[in-house]
Amino acid sequence: MSSIILKTAVRYLLPILLLFSIFLLLRGHHLPGGGFVGGLVASIAFVLHSFAHGTENTLKLLKYNPIRFIAMGLLLAACSMFIPILWGYPPMTALWVDRMIPVVGSIGTALFFDIGVYIVVVGAVLNILFTISLHSH
């Protein structure tokens, strides 16, 4: 499944798709998009890379085993859930920083929750696909 054309295309496609996925993630709060879609697009990017360069190389590129992504994402989402407790609010209360930050927009616990979702989706999808692909060969 590796051709020169695909490899070359992927070299450009991977960063573009990843950027696009982050774009989807960040704009999700106001426009269509969000953690789920963003995560799925990012996963597709890595899957394309694995088509071109082989799953082992993609895993090297990721540095960490996808299982760690799952753990990190869950941790981030859970933290953003419970952080409001520190300020005396019930869990899951959305807290927002008043100032707008360029590019990212407004920052709040819901954003971190969405980022957690994003990471979990990437981790789980890649974990499933890569495990299967490694064991099918």
């Binding site: 709060h29 106001h30 426009l31 998009g33 969000g34 959305a94 407004s106 709040g108 819901a110």
Partner: peptide, 8 residues
Amino acid sequence: AKGKNVVN
């Protein structure tokens, strides 16, 4: 909730 995409 300060979001405009209601679904999200």
